[in-house]
Design a protein around this nucleic acid. Structure first.
Length: 521
RNA sequence: GGCCCCAUCGUCUAAUCCGGUUAGGACACCGGGUUUUCAUCCCGGCAAUAGGGGUUCAAAUCCCCUUGGGGUCACCA
């Protein structure tokens, strides 16, 4: 039994797409499930200028999600280098071999000639297939061209004799007619390789056992299969996973359609949230980080556990009911035969429900450490936060409980950090609960005096005090508690009222009530 | 357009390979309960085999056609 070796080979584009991440995850999962290796290679056949900036966010996404790689960029390994741009010799040698054996040929057809051939075919309503004109060149012509240094590419000579059969691990048996496939260019005129060629060399060289990739590569597979054979490789097994669709659609999720997604009801909420949260923490908003990127979720404060759980469930299931799965559980059960064939739309609501679950597994300290950076970035607390801040935020997080769904939610609770006279009020709620509730002012005024004497000033004791107060005034909780909440926090919703009071402390509560009272008149 | 892939609740999916389920679960939504608010939590409800032909005692499941969606046809990856 040979080892399972999978790979993910992103091009250095500077961002990590959600769909690509899901494909990477499946590769990683399959390797881990089988105790094999996962390789991270960079497909930069086009020379890249700022490679570090271009791969940084990609590696960052892998690290965030905890997808480690056994060989590849940064970690090295026995099959390096792991940048295609540094493997030129390998490709040139392979091309030379193919040329020697007559399995590839120099193609001198100019782009104009090819365009003309294509136009002619179209005019006759015939399917265009590359004409192999250069095969008809005489020995002397070839020699002459070579002496002239005439520009040429190398084309792989597609064997036309039999149907190409792919036994795809996900899609089953798929057949292609080679007579319909043009001889692919494998080396450009500048002697650099094309993807279809480079990937074959690299996969074989790295002894990749399973090529798990997006289904748009299915039509490249017959070519790659034949190139593998021509080179004498045992081809890897192929598994083509469906693409990830935009929420509620069957359309492939694409960064080029961002503007359209702003009108997608589910995505719209994510964009809006980005515009709300990111500027507060010194980022650009949805124009800089959008929900097609993995980084969006990281910056927003989603948990890697939630993301992995959600991504794994996109096109794969464990059984008929298991939804919540840890990384270990997923690794244990992940198999390619349970990957579905049809595209799946990312569902932000479902992602959030996983998030709520995994957030619930965290300890207070873990939440604290994750929330603090948001508060310092927003300027709500000192940087670095001192012990008093840590303690206060820790208590706030405890009071927030399940209300904190993603870490960045913490910046919504500015009322616990701003100066009393800078408190923002929800005007509608203020009006309803204070201005237009006839005895609110009176009750607030009286209860303020009570607050001045409550000792100790903690939630339990405050609750007792308020109950006694309500009884004494022959009123009910509802008459005062809402008014109190608005007066003290400015908002109609939030943590338990008594927790809010305790958190703020006597002095601030008393002052805020006075401030609110002053607003009425 | 050629070639290839796909098709179950609004969404993610189970059951499809190997025909027999009241077509199951989750998210969302709606209703109820818990809660001082919000959030959580608990209970209940709504809701699907794209259409048409076959084969069969029996079809979501096998076959064919139609329709719809998607991918791909580069000196991109």
């Amino acid at each position: 039994m040979s080892t399972v070796r999978t790979r993910f080979a992103p091009s250095p584009t500077g961002y990590m797409h959600i769909g690509g991440m899901r494909t990477a995850l499946f590769n990683w999962l399959w390797a881990r499930h089988n105790g094999g290796q996962f390789i991270l290679r960079i497909d930069d056949t086009d020379q890249q200028r700022n490679i570090d900036a271009a791969i940084g966010p990609i590696l960052g996404a892998f690290r965030w999600l905890g997808l480690d790689w056994d060989e590849g960029v940064e970690v090295g390994g026995p099959h390096g280098p792991y940048f295609q741009s540094q493997r030129g010799e390998l490709y040139r040698a392979a091309a030379a071999r193919l040329l020697d054996q007559g399995l590839a040929y120099l193609c001198y057809s100019t782009p104009e000639e090819i365009a003309a051939d294509r136009a002619a075919a179209e005019a006759e309503k015939r399917q265009y297939v590359h004409l192999r004109r250069s095969l008809d060149l005489t020995e002397s012509q070839l020699q002459q061209y070579q002496e002239e240094n005439r520009p040429h590419v190398v084309r792989f000579l597609m064997p036309r004799d039999e149907m190409i059969v792919i036994d795809d691990l996900i899609r089953g048996r798929v057949e292609f007619d080679p007579n319909l496939i043009s001889d692919p260019v494998i080396m450009r005129a500048d002697n650099t390789p094309l993807y279809n060629f480079a990937t074959v060399i690299d996969d074989a060289h790295a002894e990749i056992s399973h090529v798990i990739r997006a289904e748009e590569h299915l039509s490249n597979t017959p070519i790659q299969l034949r190139i593998h054979e021509a080179l004498g490789h045992t081809p890897p097994l192929f598994a083509h996973v469906p693409y990830v669709a935009a929420p509620g659609t069957k359309e492939k999720l694409s960064k080029r359609k961002l503007d359209k997604y702003r009108n997608n009801p589910q995505f719209k909420r994510l964009f809006d949230r980005a515009d709300e949260v990111f500027p507060k923490i010194g980022l650009e908003g949805s124009a800089g980080l959008d929900p097609v990127m993995v980084e969006y979720y990281e910056r927003m404060g989603y948990l890697p556990e939630a993301m992995v759980n959600a991504l794994a469930r996109l096109g794969w299931s464990l059984d008929d009911k298991t939804e919540i799965m840890s990384r270990q559980t997923i690794i244990e059960h992940f198999t390619l035969d349970r990957v579905i064939k049809s595209p799946a739309g990312l569902d932000p609501d479902k992602l959030l429900s996983y998030q709520v679950h995994w957030m619930g597994e965290l300890s207070g300290v873990e939440k604290l450490d994750a929330c603090l950076p948001y508060l310092t970035a927003a300027g709500y607390v000192n940087d670095p936060p001192d012990q008093a801040v840590r303690q206060f935020v820790g208590r706030l997080i405890a009071a927030l409980a399940d209300r904190l769904k993603v870490f960045s939610d913490i910046v919504d609770y500015d009322e616990f950090f701003v100066a009393d006279d800078a408190l923002q009020y929800d005007e509608k709620a203020f009006e309803k609960r204070i201005t237009k509730t006839d005895d609110a002012v009176e009750l607030l005024t009286k209860f303020r005096s009570v607050l001045e004497t409550v000792e100790p000033f903690d939630a339990a004791n405050l609750e007792t005090a308020l109950k006694a107060f309500v009884e004494e005034q022959s009123t009910n909780m509802g008459r005062i508690i809402h008014a109190l909440r608005i007066a003290v926090t400015g908002k109609p919703a939030g943590p338990g009222m008594f927790d809010c009071l305790e958190l703020l402390g006597r002095e601030r509560c008393v002052k805020r009530i006075a401030l609110a009272l002053a607003r009425v008149s």
